[in-house]
């Protein structure tokens, strides 16, 4: 709502954080962003056997304005990229993005003129989910991991602090190109 962002750091804020995190993770509304093969697996996840309703997420919203999670399911073409960004911009804050499948995460096997090499060129991504396509169980796992992340999300001054710490850690981290040794 905005008030929670202005709370002073301390006991009250952490309590609000926990409550807000719990509420947010318990009732996420995913936007339907089915693009290709992964979209079929996403629909399967919502259907009978895997039953996304167990996690309070069965209501896929057609309108991005009512959604807070975008599951980018499939390959993003150069023609689709502006549309995807517009849908993301229409979603209200707070919002999260799952990049489902290798094509959305890195372009996958389609390293060519038509496909955007990773949806993180266009929107910030919270969870990368590998697989071509990932099984519904993997999507459920990604969603549960995102729930954990949402539960622990900071608010207001705490978020600014967390962001600063994350940036500090990223600066100190060894760039991938300078890493040596086995691929682990």
């Amino acid at each position: 709502m905005g008030i929670e962002e202005k709370l002073p750091s301390g006991f009250l804020l952490t309590t609000v954080e926990q409550a807000a995190g719990w509420v947010r993770k318990s009732s996420m509304f995913p936007a339907t962003f089915g693009l290709a093969c992964c979209a079929i697996e996403m629909m399967t996840t919502g259907a009978g056997r895997y039953d996304l309703a167990r996690f309070g997420m069965e209501v896929f919203r057609g309108s991005p304005r009512q959604a807070d999670l975008m599951i980018v399911a499939g390959r993003v073409s150069q023609k689709m990229a502006p549309v995807l960004r517009q849908v993301y911009d229409q979603m209200p804050n707070p919002k999260w993005v799952i990049s489902m499948g290798v094509c959305a995460s890195s372009g996958g096997m389609f390293n060519n003129y038509a496909i955007v090499q990773g949806v993180d060129h266009i929107v910030p991504v919270d969870i990368y989910l590998p697989g071509c396509p990932p099984r519904p169980e993997m999507l459920l796992d990604a969603i549960l991991k995102l729930h954990q992340h949402v539960q622990g999300e900071k608010i207001g001054v705490n978020r600014e602090k967390a962001a600063r710490e994350a940036e500090e850690a990223a600066r100190k981290a060894l760039p991938t190109i300078e890493m040596k040794g086995l691929l682990r």
Partner: peptide
Amino acid sequence: IMMPDDWQGFPQRKDYPLGGIPVEYKG
């Protein structure tokens, strides 16, 4: 019909590159 309206070139001609970008794994 397939490419965006303002696309340059004809992508499936032989002289048009595949357009792949190099992928990097740990250096």
